[in-house]
Simulated scan of single mutants.
Amino acid sequence: MPDTGTTTETTTDWKSAWESTIMPTYGTPAIELVSGSGSRVTDSDGRGYIDLLAGIAVNALGHAHPAIVEAVSTQIATLGHTSNIFAHPQVIALAGKLRDLISPDAHVFFSNSGGEANEAAFKTARLTGKRRILAADHGFHGRTMGSLAMTGQPGKRAPFEPMPAGVEFYPYGDLDALRALVEQNPTDTAAIIMESVQGETGVIPAPPGFLAGVRALCDEFGVLMIVDEVQAGMGRTGQWFGYQADGVLPDVITLAKGLGGGLPIGACVAATPAGKLLAAGQHGTTFGGNPVSCAAGNAVIDTILADGILDNVQTQGEYIRTELEALDTVTEVRGRGLMLGVVLKEPHPGFVAEAMDAGLLLNQPADDVIRLVPPLNITDTDVREAVQILKELLK
């Protein structure tokens, strides 16, 4: 690990400072991280951890990757911010790279987060002139009011109701139920939105063929297909985007998290003529497409391509799956690539703390599911050490 320097701050000091200055939306964290390199991080007490959470699928190239460090350092010393009144090379280059990965017809709106990207998708759908948006039960699309309205978790919506109107929910993966819902009012159905892999619910991939069925349904009724790739996109599943598993092209794709490799950026990408729906003055954001964040995004894409990182995602993901599914305490390992949910035979709500004590960072979207979303370039050494620790804990 790199030298973290010396600190006289105690755990009590930083926790007291956190609680006295920061809104309690996250609770008080268990540890304070001060440095990282690759897939390893160090806390303010000098303890090291293998990071299997990666900022919740954000640090695609791990911590302090040289390509990102160089890109953002050079950019901040050159041009830090312009707003969208002016163009700059980094945003044009990143939009071009996304177009190359998605569709030659793609148009991009850059935001600062996944929630904002989904907010742009929500507004895009409304500009079709139709009002209904169909979203999946248990899905998660963000915490802004529009993205929250499409989040299929009533407990998250309830404190902030009334939500923006017009959103109805369908069972994720149930094509027959979705068709029945569309047919209730097909002429006023603007869009169907889903995640290719539901992340916050417990890493649940869409059943094989479901996305292809949704694509056909949307084509039949003239409905926009929106796929939220905020967590599953940017190589997380071993392909650039989760929807590619079904060989489809959505009308709108939302991205964030891994796109910036740790820098805040989101994108709403319209891969079809839907990209022309939002007209001048109808949407915007001061920081969207910021030069420094876009420089990071360009470095992420270039590095994934140059270093063959998608192959590493598939190799390491398969190793983790094979090793953990062999355990008697594990029912299955869901997901693809390095977006994995380890389903336990019995609920174990204290596992995150136990793993942290053993030197691993991960989380639990449910008491019986452990989520593993490490950096995409995690090494053989780190994967094997982490798996060995997990196996000991899960025994």
Rank of each mutant, 00 (worst) to 15 (best):
A30I: 07
L324G: 05
L372C: 08
L79F: 03
T329M: 00
G297R: 00
V292N: 01
R215Q: 15
I301Y: 03
A64M: 11
V292Q: 05
Y172K: 08
R334D: 06
T11V: 12
T8F: 01
Q184N: 12
A95D: 13
A271H: 05
S44Y: 06
A87S: 15
R99P: 03
T11A: 13
A87V: 08
V252W: 05
G80Y: 10
N377F: 04
N59W: 10
F241S: 02
L360D: 06
G5Q: 02
G27P: 06
D228E: 03
L278K: 05
A279H: 07
A232L: 01
T74A: 15
Y26L: 15
R371V: 03
P365R: 08
L338D: 08
K391E: 12
D357N: 11
H138I: 00
M163S: 14
G115E: 04
G48N: 12
R371D: 09
I76N: 14
R47C: 02
P264M: 01
V167T: 09
Q388T: 15
E229D: 12
T8M: 05
E346V: 09
L181S: 12
T6R: 14
N298F: 02
V230M: 06
T124S: 11
V352E: 14
T254E: 04
T82R: 11
D174S: 03
I253M: 03
G55A: 13
Q314K: 15
L134I: 14
Y172R: 08
L148A: 03
I133T: 03
E161I: 00
D251M: 01
F210G: 01
P89M: 08
L181C: 02
E332F: 00
V343E: 02
K257V: 00
A355C: 11
G258F: 00
P291I: 10
S103C: 03
A232P: 08
L338K: 03
V383N: 02
D188S: 08
H63M: 14
A271V: 02
V72I: 15
A295T: 04
D302R: 09
V333I: 04
I102F: 12
I370S: 03
G337D: 05
T21Y: 04
P349C: 09
V91K: 14
P273T: 11
A120E: 07
M1G: 15
F160T: 02
A212K: 13
V91M: 14
G38A: 08
